[in-house]
């Protein structure tokens, strides 16, 4: 199986239709807790996938199993055509992994960190490679600054530079933009899309809906189980959700009333407006009807957004 998987795809050229990640039944236990419960993911080469789910749902654990940092308890599959159980070391060489918490050496400068990484990967023409990477990510001015002194956005930029240094075929990014300002987040995503255009496959976990919407496809994981996956539109459609917006001056007084009414799976604020969502459209409409026109409330239907869907999924699991 291992041999066949290795020959199926020689790493290097982008192979249309080939899978960068192809795992089935991926499972991880910590003691008696099932952290990841039989997850199947197939990410085609060159796509950008968003990996979503609440805190503690198993995103980090899944990513760590994919890049060989955690042993797989059950399940099998390949990452870049290499067996995730038997060829973890070979996978490490071709994957760029950015940890959730900044994990570079804070007492080394940016350049020293990058040179260390370049040496570990035995990159030919190290100096030039590091210099070019510093330039591309706009780190030249700060190259001698200690990594520990950088602000969140610069740390993240440096970490991306470091995990891109060895030209990985697959990037696994674990909440790369947590704690980063909006401008830096936007720049970061521009980088990701530029890299993707060059054929790189990216799996990025995030809590930001706007980031999820920038992905080709998203996978949503809850309590260790993969709940839904597909393009943003597909995920919303699969949810079968209808959402109504209630707007008006005193609309916030009705939140308590609406919660728990038949057909209302979820009611909550979205900006100043009230979003009321449910899967049973008829019951939902019946519950909302009394509020139409009352106290100047305007009711309109809106396509559900990802946040509505995810909150619903999370509520439904309780």
């Amino acid at each position: 199986m291992t041999g066949a998987a290795a020959t199926r795809k020689k790493p290097g050229a982008l192979n249309i239709g080939a899978m960068a990640i192809d795992v089935k039944g991926l499972t991880k236990r910590f003691g008696r807790k099932l952290a990841v419960d039989h997850i199947d993911i197939a990410v085609p080469e060159g796509e950008v996938w968003g990996f979503l789910g609440p805190n503690g749902s198993g995103k980090t654990t899944t990513i760590r199993m994919l890049c060989g940092l955690l042993r797989v308890d059950d399940g099998q599959g390949t990452c870049l055509g290499l067996d995730i159980r038997a060829q973890a070391e070979a996978i490490k060489r071709q994957v760029g992994y950015m940890t959730q918490r900044f994990s570079f050496w804070e007492d080394l400068s940016i350049r020293e960190n990058l040179e260390f990484v370049a040496r570990l990967y035995q990159l030919p023409d190290r100096k030039a490679k590091v210099g070019w990477t510093l330039e591309r990510l706009g780190l030249v001015q700060r190259q001698s600054q200690l990594a520990g002194e950088l602000s969140g956005g610069w740390k993240q930029r440096m970490a991306l530079a470091a995990c891109m240094l060895h030209d990985p075929k697959l990037l696994l990014l674990d909440e790369p933009t947590a704690g980063v300002d909006p401008k830096a987040r936007r720049d970061f995503w521009e980088q990701i899309h530029a890299l993707s255009a060059q054929g790189l496959t990216v799996l990025v976990s995030t809590h930001y809906m706007d980031e999820a919407e920038r992905c080709d496809r998203i996978a949503y994981i809850l309590n260790g189980r993969l709940v839904t996956q597909g393009s943003v539109g597909e995920v919303i459609e699969q949810s079968g959700l209808s959402t109504f917006v209630l707007e008006g001056a005193h609309v916030r007084h009705f939140l308590g009333e609406l919660q728990g009414k038949p057909g209302v799976d979820y009611a909550g604020f979205f900006g100043a407006a009230l979003h009321v969502s449910g899967r049973d459209r008829a019951a939902l409409e019946a519950s909302i009807a009394p509020y139409r026109g009352r106290d100047g409330i305007a009711v309109s239907e809106t396509p559900p957004n990802l946040e509505d869907v995810f909150i619903l999924l999370q509520e439904a699991a309780k």
């Binding site: 060489r93 992994y97 940890t99 900044f102 570990l120 990967y121």
Partner: peptide, 13 residues
């Protein structure tokens, strides 16, 4: 303790 261990392991050393 500094969290750099994960990074060290993720690289081919």
């Amino acid at each position: 303790e500094r969290g750099t261990y994960e990074n060290l392991l993720a690289m081919p050393a």
